[in-house]
Each structure stands twice: as C-alpha cells, then as structure tokens.
C-alpha cells in the first residue's frame, strides 16, 4: 500500500517537504488559532461584544468560525481526510454537516421561541 500525502495547506500557500513537517506546521496553525481564541475570550474587546450579526455577538461568530477552521485542519490533515477519495470524504462530511445543521437550526429556533413565550406571555418560569 502506498501512502502518498498531499503536502500543501491553505490551497497551496504553504508547502511542506515531508509529512512530518506538515504535521508540525498544522500543529503550529492550530496552536495560534487556540491562542487567539483564548485571548479574545479573556479580554472580550468591547466592539466585538456590542455588535451583532443575525442576533449573535460578533465575538461568538468569530469563535464559531475559528472552531470550524480548527475542525477542518484536524479532519483534513490529522485524520488524513485530504488523502481519501472524494466518495469517502463526501459520505462522511456531507452527511454529518447536513444533519447537524438541520438539528441545530430547528432546536435553537425552538429554544428562542420558548424564551419569547416566557418573556412576553403570561406563562412564567414555574419549574
């Protein structure tokens, strides 16, 4: 069995000579992203907390996007999804992404609806 690895990340912006050096490169990328997340989480810059997009703080959007970014590199380079065939990749990723998006959407909308009911109607928190 051959074990060819694709050695580029960031769409070819960063090229590595060997798989080992790519692993360390990805580790550095993930560490930088985690440090940014923690720093933002501790300092919470005011302009990011005040502004909102789709009813959610900018800061939370940044956290979620950075998380998806990390998830992409863990899956693609640590789990070698980059080297699998298109069929396997889609069977795994599309299934999960579709079902999770659907679930999160309906569940969060329902949660927000219940919050509005407690807030605006005569039914109050009683349990």
């Amino acid at each position: 069995m051959g074990h060819e690895h694709k050695l580029e990340i960031f769409r070819g912006l960063l090229k590595f000579k060997s798989n080992v050096s790519k692993i360390w490169g990805v580790f550095i990328v993930l560490s930088i992203v985690t440090i940014i997340e923690v720093a933002l989480g501790i300092y919470k810059p005011a302009f990011l907390v005040e502004g909102r997009f789709l009813a959610m703080k900018y800061l939370n959007w940044i956290f979620i996007i950075l998380t998806l970014f990390k998830a992409y590199y863990i899956t693609w380079d640590f789990m070698h999804m980059r080297d699998e065939t298109k069929g396997l990749r889609r069977a795994v990723v599309w299934t999960a992404v579709f079902l999770i998006c659907y679930l999160v959407l309906i569940v969060l909308l329902e949660g927000d609806y219940i919050y509005e009911v407690y807030k605006n109607n005569h039914i109050k928190f009683n349990f």
């Binding site: 079902l99 969060l108 949660g111 219940i114 407690y118």
Partner: peptide, 13 residues
C-alpha cells in the same frame, strides 16, 4: 451534536 444542540436549546431558552 445532539448533546451540544440540546445544550444550545436550554441556553437559548
């Protein structure tokens, strides 16, 4: 994701 979504549900509630 079921767990995290239900966490999100309670949090939004």
């Amino acid at each position: 994701s079921g767990f995290l979504a239900s966490y999100g549900f309670s949090r939004f509630k």
